[in-house]
Amino acid sequence: MTDTVQLTAERAEAAAEVSVRDLTVLYRTDQGELPAVAHADIDLPTGTITGLVGESGSGKSTLALSLMNAIPAPGRISSGSIQVNGVGDVTRLEGRALRRVRGRALGYVFQASQNSLNPLKTVGKQLLDLGRAHDVQDMRGLVRRARELADEMGMDGARVLDSYQHELSGGMRQRVGIVLALVLNARVLILDEPTTALDMLSQAAVLEIVRKVHRQEGLTTLVVTHDMGVVSEIADRLAVMYGGRIVEDGPATEVLQRPAHPYTRALIGATARITGDTDTARALPGRPPDLTTVPRTGCVFRERCPLAMDVCAETEPQLLTWAPDRRRACHADPATTAATGEGA
């Protein structure tokens, strides 16, 4: 395990494939423009799998979508930059250049990708549409590549291309989503809730495939999920989001073993696990905030926080490095957050 940690640290020092700096995404509501993501700073180190975890409404999907500069109206990226290796700042791209980057540099597998396939066309036809939209000259090569990827994922490539989406199981549709995301040789793979709506066996199979494709294709991968179990199974690095802020990040095993933000600790304690004492696990009190109920001043988590102090209501904690390769946004002493006991 020490090896992995060391490796991850080295990679983090090496170039990041994607660097997000000071990213703010605003959504227009009847209460004015409110931030769904506020001042987010995060790197996706080349060759790693990063897990982005949070409850619904935490802004994790918005952050993932903004990597493609694909925030739908009434939202917009209001400030910040997203540097993608070999592409430049994605937030500055538009039109044709932006369309090129989506697919060729960044592959996105949508939430419920089971339902994002066209029910009226075979997977093969949709692949050709994709090729035409991206001005692919060598269509045969594209099909060959798709079959190769499908075979790699344990499917019969030729059969899959001839299938309609209803002929495929949930797990297979998810794999087709990954094939379509990677067929243009994207270097960065973004998966939004890849295993929601799948049963345990399909989930395990999809995670195994993500791991395998990630390694074989030498990708940089971002997995967005609300399930702590899923990320801890496959991620090298973990970033936790709450109320539009990244509140903690670091190497996955370290964050799981020694969470330094009370929210991370509570989230781990609230996960139904197959081991451990069922009596010590407990749900988070309160409910996750949405755009309009996020506290406007101070720490966004303070209303549900067991460690909240006066300062938490006044000053918003910054995401700062507190130990090598570990960052957190919390006013409390790191020793306190780690020592508040299981599921506090």
């Binding site: 066996l201 989930q203 395990a204 095993t253 781990i268 197959i274």
Partner: peptide, 14 residues
């Protein structure tokens, strides 16, 4: 046994 093997492992804790 297959079903139980498929339960995600909380690496670092398990």
């Amino acid at each position: 046994q297959c079903l139980l093997s498929a339960v995600p492992v909380m690496r670092g804790l398990e």
